[in-house]
């Protein structure tokens, strides 16, 4: 199956964004952005296309939105300062300052879950991402489609506390059986 055909059939799902990537610099071919609602549909399409599952993992983006907002704020302030400086050099009044960027309404930080798929025949590595709010990290399980996802989801639950709804056995896999901590969260303190 050709890469463009695969990208097309995944992108046909509503709200799924498929971005082809440059393999040499990134190490994968397609970047697929899905939501918790379209996850199962996208995975079924990938399964129908004959992909095998490589891994599932998470990334904690704690403080990402605050950092982004601060960056935008700093940029805007620098523009204003530059304009004021050039006006002062010409002996003019500083121009009226444009409004500073407002923080986004939803400042809840997010966890990202990354699903890696690959093919045995033609080479096409897919990285599929889905974001969930840190406060309620819930996703449907894909272990009914890929039984191999069972352990990967348990591991992701261990490390990030993401609850995979419908998972047959979401107990710690690598951590002790009574573990109630998630060591790969950025605010984890040993």
């Amino acid at each position: 199956m050709h890469r463009d055909a695969i990208a097309g059939s995944i992108a046909a799902i509503d709200g799924v964004i498929v971005t082809p990537c440059e393999y040499d610099s990134k190490g994968y071919c397609l970047d697929v952005q899905v939501t918790a609602q379209t996850l199962l549909q996208a995975v079924s399409v990938i399964d129908h296309c004959g992909f095998f599952i490589e891994a599932i993992t998470g990334v904690d983006w704690l403080g990402e939105k605050t950092a982004r907002h601060k960056e935008a704020l700093d940029r805007a302030k620098a523009v204003i300062a530059a304009a004021a400086k050039s006006a002062a050099e010409k002996g003019e009044e500083p121009p009226p300052a444009p409004p500073l960027p407002q923080p986004p309404e939803d400042m809840t930080d997010e966890l990202e879950v990354v699903y890696d798929f690959n093919r045995y025949d033609d080479f096409c590595r897919i990285s599929m991402r889905v974001r969930v709010p840190r406060s309620t990290p819930c996703l449907p399980t894909i272990s009914a489609i890929y039984p191999g996802a069972d352990w990967h989801e348990r591991e992701t639950h261990d490390f990030f506390g993401i609850r995979f709804e419908g998972h047959p056995n979401l107990v710690p896999l690598l951590l002790p059986e009574d573990a109630d901590f998630h060591p790969l969260l950025k605010d984890f303190k040993a």
Partner: peptide, 16 residues
Amino acid sequence: CRKYGATGPVARGSGI
């Protein structure tokens, strides 16, 4: 192999 993501000699022993 595909459903579990098996690779290497395990997959190659299954004709992949």
